[in-house]
Write a protein that binds this DNA or RNA. Structure first.
Lengths: 295, 295
DNA sequence: ACACGTTACGGCAACCGTAAGGATT
DNA sequence: AATCCTTACGGTTGCCGTAACGTGT
């Protein structure tokens, strides 16, 4: 059976780049680190770090393979304590929601509880968030897209409108509506993959959407907004992520022919058969009170 | 810092339903289990199991929350040893691939190496497999659908044809091709979600696919085949999963109007920046030699 | 009386610190 | 000489077993 203290020592050595600094970081004597790493190496039957006196201690190939697993072990172990004690609220959120929608709600939540500390919001891509939920790294997740899978319960939280954004003084801003033909002929900027926006477009426009041309795909909504602002193309983003820009006029939202209002269903996902912690229940309750369409 | 032996004792008590049996299972004395669980409970600051003399020891609410995390810890710790020693090959695969395509290849792989033991194939849904890869629970994954995400490299392995299956003596078996209009009017049986088949259908048929009516969604291809055989509807499945049934005639594959041959790209996904183990490299090489279209 | 978990206690191993040793710059 | 890791050694802690004890069936 692996010993987590030894694992911790190993990770500290890699991070600190040496046994001496690792000891300082963990508040232990340096020979202790030597012992712990040595013992771990005996446990796994392989050398894990090179002892290079001149430069930093680097992990070996075995060490590199172990490293991500070691970090996951330590993260999980640290969280296990909080989870079982019931004093934890880690919310997983895909970036758009975590950046633009959740923070004010989290603040209000902290105010309501007269609590000093905000709930922790772990932001990632939509698929990353799904992984974290499955791995038990987060208590609940607020996502743009969730494919039903066993062991979890999902409920629609609210509907978030999507808006077609173009740069200021774009020709389309002079149109009352953008015709579909024009729409799909333009250069599009794609956002973070796995959020279901592409799926939503295909469902809404059907075959016509096949002609849609994605000029570039960017990893974050901030990058998408910058690209649109620079005139590289148009994009479809959640309203909440561009409210600021629409007010200042640096970006413009233009209506689509046929009064098509695209909406994305945001969902709250929880693990099934696992009792929620008190904070998680309270937060889910608070989400219910804001479970209105923001459109 | 959590102690994994204590975690192991806790899980064993829950699984065995009592301290006595848990001790037997772990090869320890029963009072040792009492001590370990007690110490773990002190570490996390909460009671984890009820000591009910009359019936089975049940986990408390805290215990239930801890349980999935505890199991994950033990799984990961057990695997950490094999991974760092470099003697592991755990292949994640979504069910279709893992059941119908990989086993013969895995067998050939074991033969080539003159190895006694087959590589372990962990079968799950497509999203589950993605989670396991992200959590480091598998060395590589063979999947039906992968959305590019940072930290992993994916390569197309081969193209797997999809066939439209209907029961024996279905009216469509008398047609030379099935017209699209007819196609989308039928009752469809949906397979495991998250495999991208729906996406593929929408991409291929565009707007016409909107009319597609999913009569029921089932979790496994075996269930889908049974439903189709029972005349509950038609479905679109990978060729390899119905080769047996097509030969015996219990199911029929019918061509679609316009000689549309739907193909699904199977991909091999590996973690980036982590040196592969020797078996993993060898298996990836073997996959390359079978990287042909099977159509 | 029996089954099961808890408490008590003792031996042994493991852990961690201090101090000394070796190697490289 | 200085830095850094390793080895050696001793005190303390923790782990696990046996034995005795409580308690509910």
């Amino acid at each position: 059976m692996l010993n987590l203290r030894e694992v911790q020592a190993f990770v500290a050595v890699v991070d600190a780049g040496g046994f001496h600094d690792a000891a300082g970081r963990l508040g232990l004597a340096q020979p202790t680190i030597s012992q712990q790493v040595k013992k771990l190496e005996e446990s796994v039957g392989a050398r894990l770090v090179t002892r290079d006196r001149s430069s930093r201690c680097a992990p070996t190939a075995s060490g590199l393979r172990l490293l991500p697993i070691a970090r996951a072990l330590l993260r999980t172990a640290a969280r296990a304590v909080d989870v079982s004690a019931g004093r934890t609220l880690v919310i997983g959120a895909c970036s758009n929601i975590g950046i633009y929608i959740l923070p004010p709600i989290a603040k209000r939540f902290a105010d309501t509880l007269a609590s000093e500390n905000l709930p922790e919001i772990v932001i990632g891509t939509n698929p990353q968030t799904a992984s974290r939920l499955a791995a038990g790294e987060v208590d609940l997740a607020v996502m743009e897209w969730w494919d039903a899978r066993a062991g979890f319960v999902a409920q629609t939280w609210r509907r978030e409108p999507l808006v077609l954004i173009v740069p200021a003084r774009h020709p389309w801003t002079k149109l009352s509506v953008v015709p579909r033909r024009t729409l799909f002929a333009a250069a599009w900027i794609g956002g973070e993959p796995g959020t279901g926006t592409g799926r939503l477009i295909r469902e809404t426009f059907g075959k016509a959407a096949e002609r849609l041309r994605i000029a570039m795909t960017l990893g974050s909504t901030e990058a998408v907004k910058a690209a649109v602002r620079a005139g590289l193309g148009v994009s479809l983003v959640t309203l909440s992520s561009v409210e600021q820009e629409l007010r200042t006029g640096s970006l413009c939202a233009v209506p689509i022919e046929g009064a098509v209002t695209l909406q994305k269903e945001l969902v709250v996902v929880l693990p099934q058969d696992v009792p929620s912690t008190a904070p998680a229940r309270a937060f889910t309750m608070m989400l219910q009170t804001t479970a209105v369409s923001s459109g």
